[in-house]
Every structure is written in C-alpha cells, then in structure tokens.
C-alpha cells in the first residue's frame, strides 16, 4: 500500500480517538440540554474544576490555601496525606454533586422561564466564576494527573498493523482506554434514562415541565440530578484530558471544541454527540494532514467551526436533532 494512504489511515484512527474525547465532553452538554433546555457553556470549566479537585484531593492540598494565607498571614499548604485514586474520585464526585446543588439553588432556579439565550449567557458567567474559584481553591499551575491509566504506544496494535501493512500505527493506549470508557458511559447513560425511575422522570421533565410537575415529579431534584450527572461526565472527561496533557487552564477550552460537535450532531441527541464527535475528530485531523500544509497549518483551531457552520446552513437542527418547529 502507498505510504500516503497508510499515513492517512493512521491519522484517521487518531482522529477517531480524539473524536471520542470530544464526544465525551459533548455528552455532558446534551444531558443538561435535554433535561432543562439550558446550553451549559460551563461544561468545559466543570471538567477543569473536577480534574483540579481530583488532583488537589489526591495530593492532600488545602483548598483556598493561597487566599487563606494571604488574608490571615498563615502558612498552610498541605494536609500531608496521599489518597488512593478511587477514594479521591468518590470525594470529587461529592464535590461535583455539591456544585450541582449550588448551581440549581443559586442560579438556575431563579432563571426558570427566561429566554434560552439569557440562560446561555448565565452559564458563561458561571464558567468565569467557576474558573476563578478553581484557581483560588487549587492554584493555577499545570498539575500532573496520574490515577494509573495506561499511557504510551499501544504495542499490540503496532504489531498487528506492522504484520498487515508493513507499517506500525502509533495509537496511544490512553486513547484506547478513553474510547472504551466513553462507550461504557454512553451505554450506562442510555440504560439509566431508559430503565430507571429517575431516568424516566428525567425524560418526562425534558418532554414537558408542567406535565411532569403535575404527575408529582420534583423539578428541583431532577435538575440537581442532571447537573450532577453532567458533573460526573465532566469528571471523566477531565480525567482523560488531564492525564493526556496535564491539568491546566486549556482544559476548559475543550468545551469550545465540543460546541461544533453538538451543532453537527444536534443538541438533543446522545448518538448525535458521538457521531458528531467522531466526524469532527476525523475531519479536523485529516484536513490538517492534507490541506493544512498548503495553507500554513494549525487549521485545527477553526476547521470544526467552519464545518459545523457550513453544515448548519443546510440542516439547521443538526444531524440527529429534533426538527425545529416555530410558531408565532
């Protein structure tokens, strides 16, 4: 086989893996959007916050230590313990549920019935707020996150492809793990929303708030739950991205990457988020591989947006979204 084609195949595979990670972030958006009609811009910052909290808890860092030291002139930094990964993840989850409750209690409850765009802008405000809190709590340096996920080149795949084509593909182990986890997460989420009582209640709320209220479903509870689930998805995404490239501010920018994924897949569809993520992942990698050198490279920043933009002009509701019906 010609080398170019092999390279293209490798790029495609890597694109698929990157796409899975995009889809992982996009999932969090879809969940909240389906249940409450809120487009949660803060999802990326939630991933950052979750990953930061996880690192902080694992290393036994005292939250807000810089601020406390600055105000009271003390010198505290560390509790001096080292927690195992699983305990830290559970504790982080508790924090994320607390965050979900706060968001519902102090922000979203007061904005029920506002125009969607107002809610969107509120979540931009939330993103800023959370970013500041995360920096104050845990500091803003780049942190290493290592909870024991495998990393480095996947040798099995390398060997198999070498035997087949005479050229070994480079695929990161972490990407493989991420794809498996993402697949499991999607199955779990679908099962949750189809077969459990809470999941059914969630779908009812998504369908019609008033009707759901009238059969005795607590909107407050459902929304806190949805934000918690989104927090959980953010935590998973944060762990994946954090392990890949360190926990730092740029983690929150993956939210921006997930936006075109959503537009492509449709805001209301979980399969859409996955397919959209894969298309964007492969598309931007291939585009950068083939067209990039001709136009000066670094096309990854904007390609996804332009693709989504062009696509939306022809199909405004996205690939799998519900048809938008407008009435006066």
């Amino acid at each position: 086989m010609p080398d170019q084609l092999l390279y293209a195949m490798e790029v495609t595979l890597n694109g698929l893996m990157a796409g899975v990670l995009y889809a992982l972030v996009a999932l969090g958006f879809v969940l909240i959007y389906k249940a409450s009609g809120i487009f949660n811009y803060a999802q990326g910052v939630m991933a950052l916050f979750a990953a930061m909290t996880l690192v902080g808890i694992t290393e036994g860092q005292v939250p807000f230590s810089h601020l406390i030291n600055a105000i009271f002139g003390t010198e505290i930094h560390n509790f001096g313990w080292q927690l195992p990964g699983l305990v830290a993840i559970l504790l982080t989850m508790v924090v994320m549920v607390g965050l979900a409750w706060c968001v519902q209690q102090f922000v979203m409850r007061h904005l029920v019935g506002q125009a969607p765009i107002i809610l969107f802008m509120a979540t931009i405000g939330l993103a800023y707020f959370l970013e500041g809190v995360s920096d104050l709590m845990w500091g803003s340096e780049i942190r290493k996150l290592d909870i024991g996920l495998p990393q480095g080149i996947n040798e099995t795949l390398d060997r198999v492809t070498y035997d087949l084509f005479g050229y070994g593909f480079f695929i990161d182990n972490l990407d493989v793990v991420a794809s498996v986890i993402a697949a499991l997460l999607v199955i779990a989420l679908v099962a949750f929303s189809q077969y459990t009582k809470q999941g059914r209640a969630m779908r009812a709320v998504a369908d019609d708030h008033q009707a759901a209220l009238s059969v005795g479903i607590s909107l407050n509870f459902i929304w806190v739950m949805v934000w918690s689930v989104a927090g959980f998805v953010a935590l998973v995404a944060g762990i994946m991205w954090g392990t890949k490239s360190g926990v730092q501010f740029s983690l929150s920018l993956i939210a921006l990457k997930a936006l075109p994924v959503l537009m492509l897949g449709g805001f209301t569809s979980i399969p859409g988020a996955i397919v959209g993520g894969l298309i964007i992942g492969v598309g931007e990698k291939l585009f950068d591989f083939m067209i990039g050198p001709m136009v000066g490279g670094a096309t990854e920043n904007w390609f996804a947006y332009v693709l989504a933009l062009v696509f939306l002009v022809f199909r405004p509701q996205g690939l799998f979204g519900e048809k938008i019906i407008e009435r006066v």
Binding site: Q114, G125, L126, A127, F129, E131, G132, D135
Partner: peptide
C-alpha cells in the same frame, strides 16, 4: 486576578437574575 474572575462571573449571574 483570580478573584476578579470570580467577581465578574458572579456579577454576570447576579445581573441576569
């Protein structure tokens, strides 16, 4: 600088609410 982020974000939410 971090406090500023918190304050700006908080203000945005407060104003919208």
């Amino acid at each position: 600088a971090h406090l500023q982020l918190v304050i700006v974000g908080g203000l945005i939410i407060t104003f919208l609410v």
